[in-house]
Amino acid sequence: MTHRGLAPDGTIAREGALDRVPPLFAPVIEAARTLIATTFGPPGGPLPDRPGRPPRLHSAYLYGSIPRGTALLGVSDLDLQLALHHEPTETDRADARALEKALDDAFPQIDGVGILLTSRATLLSDLERHDLGFFVACLCTPLLGPDLARDLPRYRPTTELARETNGDLALLLPRWRARAADAATDTARRTLCRAVARRLVRTGFTLVMPRWNGWTSDLTDSATIFGDHYPARAPQMRTAATLARTPSPDPAALDPLLEDLAPWLAAEYATVHGTKTPRP
């Protein structure tokens, strides 16, 4: 039983589980499990057809709406995190892209596949303890291999967690603006609009997370909780939540987010929580 996404001891409860996967998505998950093991090798062992090759895969995880049980047929994407025994190589990335395409082409239930590749050492590092470590421990659902959450702490909705998860918004603004200027197709503009809107809603939520004292990944709930603390900015955040679900190719939809909401949010975040520890 959870309250505001928290376990009885006040720590953030893991939000997904395999038994929450909607039945229509179950074949997608089984295919992903098989293809990951075939492509990257079974966790802890070499590829069966290449016995001399060192093992690549430590563990694999689901995240997003499918393991939360809120996925929409033909709309939601499949999100996967692979923990490797080594830092990802170009070969690993090429294999992941091929796996993404194979799953996306095979299943009309999903609209796209995204695979994150990260080394086990990075996920367990002190630097990533309150960012990628939190992501694996609380937002990811184990699919294959040993669960890295066993080697990570229990997390609470603190200002440290807020700072290390979303305290780098100011660094993203120049990149987003450059991508907006270069976006030449409706597809590119929709992709950017969705990414920007999602990040702003999640950042808005974590800005107020310690005061609200809880956790949610639901975008509508996140916008509402933010708006309760910043009513003057509530309409903009509701718009961002709408665009995160149904992105628009119209620059007039994205521009207010990039030029008004995002700069304000970055400055307010730095004032309230500070900025994220710099990464290499």
Rank of each mutant, 00 (worst) to 15 (best):
P8L: 12
A234Y: 14
L200I: 07
A178W: 09
V208N: 11
L169W: 06
R120Q: 14
W212N: 12
P278A: 11
P263N: 13
G145Q: 15
D151Y: 12
A170H: 04
V75F: 07
P55R: 08
P108W: 04
A252I: 06
G16N: 01
H130N: 15
L78T: 02
R33Q: 07
L80S: 02
A252D: 14
E15T: 13
G10S: 13
R33L: 05
A240S: 13
C193L: 13
S248F: 09
E30S: 15
A267K: 14
L18M: 06
P263Q: 11
N213R: 09
L117A: 05
Y63E: 00
T242S: 10
S59Y: 02
L80Q: 01
R50K: 15
A7F: 09
D131M: 04
D95S: 15
L116E: 10
P280F: 12
D228C: 15
P153W: 07
G167T: 02
T191S: 09
L219N: 05
F134A: 02
Y61C: 05
H58K: 06
G69E: 00
T275H: 07
A13E: 10
D218M: 03
T11R: 04
V136D: 01
H58E: 08
D105M: 10
A270I: 07
T239A: 13
D104Y: 06
M1R: 14
D104H: 11
F135P: 01
F25Q: 04
F107P: 01
R154Q: 12
L148F: 04
E128T: 00
G5V: 05
A223T: 10
D131F: 09
T159A: 11
H130F: 15
W215K: 01
Y269P: 12
L173A: 11
R199Q: 10
P146Y: 15
I12Y: 05
T275K: 11
D111G: 08
F226Q: 02
A232P: 12
F40G: 04
L172N: 05
V272Q: 12
D168Q: 13
R198T: 09
P51T: 05
G74H: 04
L139D: 00
R233L: 12
T277V: 15
P235Q: 15
T206Q: 03
Y63H: 06
G227K: 09
S59I: 02
A106V: 11
Y63M: 01
L143S: 05
P51N: 06
E128S: 03
L80I: 12
R4G: 07
T242L: 10
